[in-house]
Design a protein around this nucleic acid. Structure first.
Lengths: 169, 169
DNA sequence: GTGTGCATGTAAGGAGTTACATGATTGC
DNA sequence: GCAATCATGTAACTCCTTACATGCACAC
């Protein structure tokens, strides 16, 4: 939240929109999370809220306070181990694939390959261009992460292709 | 659950132990999940339970019913898209790294590199040997997945190393 | 005899999602 | 006029984790 507001997102809705085209792949959010959290961060003194209505429609506009900016930098440089959660039904299926016939095994790996290929393509075609826009504003890391993701998925796809070939022998 | 019982785990405790050294990286479980789920699967007719006490200590021993085996195979071959959840604070930090000095950026990437290196090493040194034991029983996929994980983390580590070098210039 | 492992469960709580509810603005 | 988008929130629910609670078996 602090990071997105630091990058210029002003409303809860804008934060949600921004995450949906950027951090979604490694940190999804939902609106039902965003609004309570904004209130919490404002109460904690990390955000300053101001009313910024559009016509009759009320709107809250948030900015980082000095404390909020400090909290963001402190989190970014924190030595504390970063949490990570990964749960993948595709790999779980593969784990139990010995129960299948060779044909079904190859089909299962094929589905995983296709999934990895699709993810890589999506990152290259849809996400990277958005990151390029940010790059013109001097933000290099969104693009770096998009490339890391695309390259890693492509690597997995090739790895699975080789595994398929070895299994066919 | 069905998969682990198919591989020979008989008790809830044994399932938990098995997942902790195998599927933990892509499908963690906790005991508080396992026991209610075993009851549920038994009520659904996918598992058969028998009493198998050790001395005075009661113990439940589970086996797949015909229905359970069919359900397992049907799940493995399902065309339905596999669910996947990935949430990673390390990459999230990197996403906002433009807010940092170059020195702090390099340190942040260094921590991510170290994490990837540690994961790869752990898979090679701790998990792969366990998978090798299973391989002697004809189970090749646990080992395949351990190698996929180790290779992918190693790839990420190298990718980040190159990124660090480019940033230094 | 004592600590470690085996074994089964419950309770409380946290994190996050989906669905529900509402309504103004903007562009076609 | 109508649809898509902007915008803010609540309620119910699901999933999962941590902590609590209990006690036998076995090896040293």
């Amino acid at each position: 939240m602090l990071g997105m507001i630091g990058l210029g997102a002003r409303s809860g809705y804008a934060i949600k929109r921004a995450t949906d085209i950027s951090t979604r792949f490694f940190w999804p959010t939902s609106l039902a999370q965003v609004y309570p959290e904004l209130s919490r961060l404002e109460r904690a003194g990390l955000l300053a809220r101001s009313e910024d209505p559009r016509g009759l429609r009320r709107r809250s506009s948030y900015e980082l306070t000095e404390q909020g900016e400090a909290a963001l930098l402190s989190w970014l440089c924190s030595e504390q181990k970063a949490t990570t959660h990964f749960r993948d039904e595709g790999i779980l299926r593969l784990f139990f694939a010995d129960a299948l016939t060779l044909e079904d095994q190859l089909a299962l790996i094929g589905r995983l390959r296709e999934r990895a290929r699709a993810a890589s393509t999506q990152l290259v075609q849809e996400i990277a261009p958005l990151a390029d826009v940010l790059a013109e504003e001097g933000l290099r890391y969104p693009g770096l992460i998009a490339r890391l993701g695309a390259d890693t998925y492509a690597y997995v796809e090739q790895w699975l292709e080789r595994a398929q070939e070895e299994l066919r022998e």
